[in-house]
Structure formats: C-alpha cells, structure tokens
C-alpha cells in the first residue's frame, strides 16, 4: 500500500503541510477562498516538538488492524479498497471512542462541511483520495520542502531505512568515535519540552 512516509529527522516544523492539508480538506480547495468558508477547514496532521528531532510530524498510520475501527460504536470507521482507514462523517457521532483507542493520538474533533448539519465529527488523515484519483500525491507531501513527508510503498521504504541503518551502524564501527556536538540552548530547551 502506498502511504505517506514520515522522516522526522528532516522536519523543520514549518507547518506548511498543515496549511496544505487544511486547504485540501476545505470546500473550495483554495487558500484564499477557504479562509472565508462557514466551516473552518482543519488540518489532519500535527507537528509536535520532538525528543530526538527538532519537530515530529504526527498523522494517521492507517494501521492494520486498526484499533479505532475495532472500537467504533457507530460503525463509521472502515477500510477503503485502497487500504486506508476512513471515517464516514455521515455515521460518526463524535463520541471520542476512537481517541481512546488510537495509540498515536491522531484524531481531532471539529465541524466538517461534509457532515450532516455541519456537525462536529472525528477527523484524521484520509490520504487525499481526490488527489489520488487525479494521480497526484497527498497535499502534505506536495507541500513539504525538506523531504520529511514523502509518498511511497511502505515495504520499500522499510527496506531502504533498514539498509541505511545497517550502513550507519557499520560505518560507526569503523570510524573513531566522535564526541557529540553541544547544542544551542534554544534547541536543548525545545527538546526538553517534548
């Protein structure tokens, strides 16, 4: 399955993905027009201060099996044919059971223009189905300028990451041990806050 791959070590916390995500999930899909919409569009991913990195992008992993799907008492969460976990705003009752189950804390609850009466429903990454239909990558990936969010087959990425890690371990065994560079104060404090 193709998915958004997160590389937190590259993220600089610029929030452009959040902006792009909110625009993509607006009614007009246009930044200027989205600002004037009756129901404020919301981003579906968050950026936290990271423990090992500057910033940590957090979004739905589309788990298999999905804990949120198992606990949904309204039957609103389902798996789509393309493999993503999706929430049906017509069925969601805003009960927050999924927030209780999600081990990554990726859900938000807010009004949605697609929901009946614009009521509040559970929101999370849907991996931009309309963009995929047009052969485009998800909005957050397109917006990311530093390669922290990329789009690809997760199995391939896992293999790549494994290879990189193995090479790094091998290289570190061969080179003399370096001392860790001291960090500027503001970065150190930022990391402590996570």
């Amino acid at each position: 399955m193709k998915t958004v791959i997160v590389r937190p070590e590259r993220c600089v916390g610029c929030w452009q993905c959040r902006l792009a995500c909110a625009v993509e999930h607006s009614q007009t899909k246009d930044l200027a027009a989205a600002l004037g919409e009756g129901v404020r569009p919301r981003p579906r991913l968050r950026i936290y201060p990271g423990r090992q990195h500057l910033a940590f992008p957090n979004k739905c992993r589309h788990c298999e099996p999905a804990p949120c799907q198992a606990v949904c008492i309204a039957g609103a969460i389902h798996r789509t044919p393309r493999g993503t976990v999706d929430i049906d705003p017509g069925k969601c009752i805003n009960c927050a059971m999924c927030a209780m189950a999600c081990p990554f804390g990726v859900l938000t609850y807010a009004s949605l223009y697609k929901a009946p009466d614009h009521r509040a429903v559970a929101l999370k990454c849907d991996q931009c189905p309309e963009r995929e239909a047009q052969g485009r990558v998800p909005a957050c990936v397109e917006a990311c300028k530093v390669g922290a969010l990329t789009y690809g087959e997760w199995q391939e990425t896992q293999e790549d990451k494994g290879r990189v890690l193995a090479q790094a371990v091998f290289a570190s065994l061969q080179s003399p041990r370096e001392t860790e560079p001291s960090l500027p104060d503001n970065l150190r404090v930022w990391r402590l806050l996570s």
Binding site: A99, G105, L107
Partner: peptide, 8 residues
C-alpha cells in the same frame, strides 16, 4: 481528549 490513546 485527542491524546487519550497514547496514555492508554
């Protein structure tokens, strides 16, 4: 309540 799942 968004992060409840992490605590659990």
């Amino acid at each position: 309540v968004a992060h409840a799942g992490i605590y659990f």
